[in-house]
């Protein structure tokens, strides 16, 4: 298994995620249209299971059910999802269909309780792991609505996150000064104001700044699987390109992304190999990127007739 991003990032290539690195990630140097791992040719998931697997299994979700801890209300009603190394997945679906809940349950959000099913990540049972262990194992979720942490500077937060990872990898902690060159490149790559580092985590940030800040965190700590929940909402076209560029920069044959989005424009920038439709707490349909175009033209109602 390839070392997690962050470890590689700080041990050898401090600027791994910026597009200028020498890592053998050919796709990054190609135009965005050819970014996805197995563009277009990729068969729908139903038959993909039968086809020879190109990448190793990363995430395997079976019959996952979960409810809100406080009320017991069931939200996820049997989710099945398989993601392999190097794949780009997108989940679409109406508001309230359970997309955010799925990502939060995957990272162990304390509001939810898993009531059934299994989640395997890189061969380990995720359900038994603490949220920080899941993160250190290489799972990253960008929050749809990131909260503020008053009093904690973005810089310190990022450094703590990176050092947690370094500790796990047996690397010495980075000092605040050493970290500066690592983080400032990432900030630049995302076309963010350097001042964003001195500000408290998300405090007074605009919606767009919060989304970029999530991606900044991803680019600092790295991930084997990034769950990106509506990173496109609240972003203007330019900002979306910056974010997409950064995400594409993260993609290697070993890493995967699961995006949640309502909009084609993100899928044009980060090409999905699979598109899933979620409805009432279940994935009801899986296809390739043409499924997304279809929905964008005819809405979710049209997928019933989509072949």
């Amino acid at each position: 298994m390839a070392p997690p991003f962050a470890a590689a990032a700080v041990s050898s290539h401090p600027s791994l995620f910026s597009p200028s690195t020498s890592r053998p990630a050919i796709r990054r140097h190609l135009p965005p249209s050819s970014i996805s791992v197995r563009p277009r040719r990729c068969p729908p998931a139903a038959s993909a299971a039968a086809a020879e697997p190109a990448g190793k299994l990363l995430l395997e979700v079976h019959g996952l059910t979960a409810s809100v801890k406080e009320t017991g209300q069931q939200i996820l009603k049997g989710v099945d999802l398989t993601i392999r190394e190097g794949e780009v997945h997108a989940i679409m679906g109406k508001n309230g269909s359970g997309k955010s809940t799925l990502t939060k349950v995957l990272v162990g959000h304390p509001h939810y309780e898993v009531t059934g099913g299994t989640i395997m990540f890189k061969g380990e049972n995720l359900i038994d792991m603490e949220p920080e262990e899941r993160s250190l194992a290489g799972l990253f979720m960008s929050f749809q609505a990131p909260i503020e942490i008053p009093g904690v500077s973005n810089y310190d937060f990022l450094l703590m996150a990176l050092n947690a990872r370094r500790e796990k990898d047996g690397l010495p902690a980075l000092g605040p000064l050493e970290f500066y060159s690592v983080v400032s490149q990432k900030v630049e790559a995302l076309k963010m104001e350097p001042k964003i580092l001195d500000r408290n985590v998300n405090e007074g940030f605009s919606g767009g700044e919060r989304k970029r800040n999530e991606i900044l965190q991803l680019s600092v700590v790295g991930a084997d699987l990034a769950l990106l929940d509506e990173i496109d909402s609240g972003l203007d076209v330019d900002a979306l390109e910056d974010v997409a560029h950064a995400v594409n920069g993260l993609l290697t044959p070993q890493n995967s992304v699961l995006m949640i989005t309502h909009y084609q424009r993100l899928l044009d920038l980060i090409k999905p190999s699979y598109v899933h439709i979620m409805e009432s707490g279940k994935i009801v349909k899986t296809g390739d990127s043409s499924l997304a175009s279809h929905i964008n033209e005819g809405g979710f109602k049209s997928i019933a007739s989509f072949v």
């Binding site: 990272v107 162990g108 959000h109 304390p110 603490e130 949220p131 920080e132 993160s135 250190l136 990253f140 979720m141 929050f143 990131p146 909260i147 942490i149 009093g151 904690v152 310190d156 937060f157 703590m160 996150a161 947690a164 990872r165 796990k168 985590v201 965190q217 700590v221």
Partner: peptide, 19 residues
């Protein structure tokens, strides 16, 4: 707030100290 730290790999004790 604690969960935000955890989601980034920081354990509860360290996050508590920081908060």
């Amino acid at each position: 707030e604690l969960f935000y730290f955890q989601a980034r790999g920081v354990d509860v004790k360290t996050a508590t100290d920081a908060l």
